[in-house]
């Protein structure tokens, strides 16, 4: 089985990927594929190698074996890696941070204003355009980083638990924003998390890292039904709490 549920072109193909850090094997023989506009959620416990996998897909780590292929033509970068640290530029205001990739590509000013304005409005940042980055809250910074990533038009977006450091309410908002914008802009994303609810909320295809290996699921039902994911357990727990109230 492969992580392809839709009929879109294949964007990501990973074959026989093995990763070692300091001579220690982290991941062995990972195989996955991802179609266009899909969001692959990779679930795993802390320390199982989720971030390592993502960094390898981003080209930040060299694998010990195997291949990673990202296909398709790109206007922007082939892949873009996002994690909990927004990495915003403090000398630029909110607008210029969002427009960063467009400015590097020398996009026409009118188009920059239109695209940036649209996304800032969608993410609720339209009133903050002239502010400095240090004046934003944690959630606002994450939203801005996400806007910047979208405007960069990467072929593949790699998200490493970007909402983990946010409070519950802000995290829910960010998940809703991500889902909406990913659908709207047909983003192809690999999203790693250890949060089961986040996985179910955001994913269209699912995979799990366990014991250094990777297992993918054909559909959401299969993912939920697998007792090793802990999804059914958690859903039952929340159901129990809700009925108790």
């Amino acid at each position: 089985m492969s992580g392809v549920s839709g009929a879109g072109a294949c964007v990501l193909r990973v074959r026989g990927l093995s990763i070692q850090l300091g001579g220690r094997p982290i991941l062995r023989d990972v195989n996955l594929t991802l179609a266009e506009a899909e969001t692959l959620v990779v679930l795993g416990s802390s320390g199982c190698g989720k971030s390592t996998l993502l960094k390898c897909l981003a080209g930040l780590l060299r694998p010990a074996a195997g291949t990673v292929a990202v296909s398709g033509s790109v206007a922007g970068p082939i892949s873009l890696y996002l994690d909990q640290e927004p990495l915003l530029f403090e000398h630029l205001n909110v607008f210029e941070n969002a427009a960063f990739a467009l400015r590097l590509r020398r996009t026409a000013e009118a188009e920059v204003r239109r695209e940036v304005g649209q996304l800032l409005e969608l993410t609720g940042l339209e009133s903050e355009v002239r502010k400095s980055v240090w004046q934003l809250s944690g959630g606002q910074k994450q939203r801005l980083a996400f806007v910047r990533a979208l405007l960069a038009r990467p072929r593949l977006l790699l998200m490493d638990e970007p909402f983990a450091s946010l409070d519950a309410q802000t995290r829910l908002k960010m998940q809703a924003i991500f889902r909406s914008l990913a659908e709207q802009h047909q983003m192809t994303t690999v999203f790693v998390t250890h949060d089961v609810r986040e996985a179910l909320t955001l994913g269209t295809v699912f995979g799990r890292l366990v014991g250094g290996g990777y297992r993918d699921y054909g559909c959401r039902a299969e993912f939920i039904a697998d007792p090793e994911t802990g999804v059914r357990e958690e859903l039952d727990l929340w159901d129990g709490i809700r009925w108790a109230d």
Binding site: G76, P77, Y81, E85, L87, L104, A152
Partner: peptide
Amino acid sequence: PSSWRREQLVRTLGGGDVAVWRHVVLP
């Protein structure tokens, strides 16, 4: 550590050495 990550980000987004100096090193 974040300086190196921002440099990588600038290069990933299509920036060259000038962009790295302008947006990471000098700030």
